[in-house]
Amino acid sequence: MTWELGGTLLGLAALDSLNPATIVAIILILLGSRRHPIGEALGFVFGAFASVFLVGLAVYFGAEAAAESITGALTWLRRGAFGLAALVLFLSAARSLRTRRRSAIELPDWFTPTTAAGLGIIMTGADLPNAFPYFIAIERLLTADVSSTTAVLVLVAYGVVYCLPCLVLLAVGLNHGERVVTALRRLFEQFGTEATLPPSPKRALTLFVLGLMVLAIAFTI
C-alpha cells in the first residue's frame, strides 16, 4: 500500500461521497423527523456504510477470484471498471438532454432508526451502479495486489469517507440551530422536492467529454 495509491483511493472516496441522494436524505430527516432525528439519521448513515462496505467486499473478492482463475482476467476487469464508468457518464449525459421529472423525497410514517438503516442500505445499494469512482477504486485495489486484510481495511475507510458529508451535515444541523436549518431547507427545496428538470446541454457536454476521457483510459490499459 503506497502513499500514491492511498491518495488516489481517498480522492475517489471523497468524490463518491458527494452523493445528492444520501445528502438530501439526511437533510430530510433533520427537517421532517417527528420522533428521533439523531437516531434516524445515524441509522441511515450506518445503512449507507454497510451497503458500500458489503458490496465492495463482494465485488473485490469476486473479481480477485476471477483474476486468479482466468488468464488475462485482471486486464479485462480493469477495462470493465473504466468501461462501466464511461457508460454511466454517457447515460447521464443523454438524460441531461431531455426534460426529466424528479419525484419528491418524503419521510414515511413508519420511519424509525431501524427502518432508516434499511432505507440507507437500499438507497445506497440502488445508487452504487452509478458510482463510477467506486468501481475504479476497487480496480485500483486489485491491480495494486495488496493483501486481503489491507483491502478490507481500505474498504472500511472508503465507507467512512463516503459517509463523512452526511455526518458533518448532521453535526452542523444539530449544533447551529435555526440558521442552518433554514439553509438546509433551501437546499432541500432545490434538490429534494418534486420538480421538472429542463434539458441542460452544458451538463450533457461536460459528462460526455468526461465519459470519452474515461473510455480512452479503458482502451489504453
Rank of each mutant, 00 (worst) to 15 (best):
A63V: 08
L155M: 15
R185Q: 13
V146I: 15
A93K: 00
S96L: 06
V154Q: 08
F46N: 00
G83P: 00
L141I: 09
L197M: 05
F53W: 14
V209D: 01
W76Y: 15
S51G: 09
I121L: 15
L84N: 02
R95F: 10
F53S: 10
V55W: 14
T150M: 10
V180S: 01
L170R: 12
L28G: 10
L42D: 01
N19K: 07
L207A: 06
I136Q: 01
L187Q: 02
T220Y: 04
P37H: 11
T220P: 00
R179K: 13
I29G: 07
T150Y: 13
E4T: 14
A171L: 12
L153N: 06
I221H: 01
G80K: 04
I221T: 10
L169C: 09
L9V: 10
L18H: 03
V209T: 11
A48G: 15
L128Q: 04
S148P: 04
C166K: 15
A86Q: 07
L205H: 04
E106Y: 05
I217D: 00
Y158K: 11
T206D: 02
G56W: 14
R100P: 04
R101H: 15
L155R: 12
I70R: 11
G47S: 13
L141V: 05
L57V: 14
A63D: 05
L10R: 01
A144W: 00
L42F: 12
